[in-house]
């Protein structure tokens, strides 16, 4: 159920972003690009959620008991949290996709900053933010 709602949300954001990119106003285009990049980031995060499978981090010499997951470090026993005993099935997330999303967010921050400055300069040069009026280049 949650996955369905997440997918629909991503699709909606993507659709709104695409709609905004097709507008005539430069600022709307930039907002549309940001929305699409957020939709893509959510898509990447959603690929890293697993439920009811074996967690990837498994302790070799497991000492704990109870719920199966240790959330506190026990350095004297050589345990670094979170560690899962072999055979435990628990929901977990793939940490790699979060690293990917972090990279993608930083990149989209840089591009958005650049493109906003570009939009400001275009407004200074052309006196308009309407892309239909940006037609000085032609063959």
């Amino acid at each position: 159920m949650n996955n369905t709602i997440l997918s629909i949300t991503i699709a909606l954001i993507f659709g709104i972003g695409t709609f905004l990119i097709l507008r005539r106003d430069i600022i709307k285009i930039i907002i549309g690009l940001s929305l699409i990049s957020h939709a893509v980031n959510m898509l990447i995060v959603s690929t890293g959620v697993f439920d009811g499978e074996k967690a990837p981090i498994i302790a070799e010499g497991y000492h704990g008991s109870g719920s199966g997951i240790i959330f506190t470090d026990k350095l004297s026993e050589g345990i670094l949290a979170p560690i899962v005993p072999p055979g435990t099935e628990t929901p977990f997330v793939d940490p790699l996709v979060q690293a990917l999303v972090l990279t993608a967010i930083v990149i989209s921050l840089a591009t958005t900053a650049f493109i906003l400055i570009l939009a400001y300069r275009i407004h200074e040069e052309y006196g308009t933010t309407d892309v239909k009026k940006l037609r000085r280049l032609r063959g």
Partner: peptide
């Protein structure tokens, strides 16, 4: 400079969509 701005805007938007 205004030609350069216009060209860069097209380049950046299209290539950002490509990156997405």
């Amino acid at each position: 400079i205004s030609d350069k701005m216009e060209a860069t805007f097209k380049y950046l938007i299209l290539n950002m969509i490509g990156s997405m």
